[in-house]
């Protein structure tokens, strides 16, 4: 920028801090800030802090590069504002508007102070606009990042929820799988199954794939890995719930499930598991 640190903005902000702050707050209240999500007191405090850090940083005369160290403080502050707004349920626009709305009060003061000098005023406004846009974009970036973190965490939670290992009987576990089996899910599934095998000392685990829509080569490999890992620890797996189409697919794909016990239904698998564990089922009364 051509101003080269001779900008009047730092001086103006210092002299008229209170007025700028009041105008800015008024601006945001008028624009309809979400009072349901944010108290006026909180907003005032945020604006005050922003203004203080902004005034500090701008002393250095650097209007173009917000990556430089003097902007660190303000960026951190904006990041935390952005994060808290994301969590409170503000939209990205509302979040960025916190910064954008600072333009009006600032420009108003600039006009008042520099009104007689059109050229300088234009330059000041241009460089300030540029800077504020960058800061606002920064809040959007943080907003996005916070959202991504939330999604990632939810994905992980969902993943763990989606692979429950249940104990059916003394020494018999069941792992009903619903949905597609990808590598990440297999990994978690394998971990929770093996962990439960250790915890419960179970020697038989039934993996029920009734809820798995399709089985491709990769899915079959994932299943095989799980079965092999369980076997290495000393537990046998039975795969149940294989629908006729899936049986056909498995054969067409040339996947070798010969070493694995398979059963059509979970009930059949359970009976087999009981038998292997030395239990027998009998009816105490004959059904009429």
């Amino acid at each position: 920028m051509s101003l080269n640190g001779q900008s009047k903005i730092p001086q103006i902000l210092k002299n008229r801090e209170a007025e700028v702050l009041a105008d800015w707050l008024g601006e945001q209240m008028a624009a309809g800030i979400r009072k349901d999500l944010l108290k006026e007191m909180e907003l005032r405090e945020e604006c005050r802090e922003f203004l203080e850090l902004f005034t500090d940083a701008i002393q250095q005369g650097n209007f173009t590069n917000i990556q430089s160290p003097e902007w660190r403080g303000l960026k951190d502050m904006l990041a935390s504002v952005s994060r808290s707004r994301t969590q409170k349920g503000f939209t990205p626009t509302e979040t960025a508007n916190f910064v954008f709305s600072f333009k009006q009060p600032l420009f108003k003061r600039l006009r008042q102070e520099l009104g007689q000098n059109g050229e300088t005023l234009l330059e000041e406004i241009l460089s300030a606009t540029n800077l504020i846009d960058k800061l606002a974009l920064w809040t959007t970036e943080i907003y996005q990042k916070t959202r991504e973190e939330v999604i990632l965490r939810q994905q992980e939670e969902l993943m763990e929820l989606s692979t429950p290992v249940v104990k059916l009987w003394e020494g018999i576990l069941a792992l009903p799988i619903i949905g597609t089996l990808d590598s990440a899910r297999t990994q978690i599934m394998m971990e929770s199954l093996l962990q439960m095998i250790v915890q419960t000392g179970s020697q038989v685990a039934i993996i029920d794939i009734t809820g798995v829509p399709t089985v491709d080569t990769l899915t079959a490999q994932h299943l095989l890995k799980t079965v092999t890992a369980a076997r290495l620890m000393g537990a046998d797996c039975i795969i149940s719930g294989i629908r006729p189409q899936i049986a056909q697919t498995i054969v067409y794909l040339g996947v070798d499930l010969a070493d694995i016990t398979t059963k059509a239904s979970l009930a059949d698998a359970f009976v087999l598991a009981l038998k292997r564990s030395g239990f027998a089922i009998s009816r105490s009364k004959s059904a009429i």
Partner: peptide
Amino acid sequence: VGMQPAVAITLVELGLS
């Protein structure tokens, strides 16, 4: 006897059954 889960998973990935 007593292979740990993490060891079993790693062995399978390594390609040893």
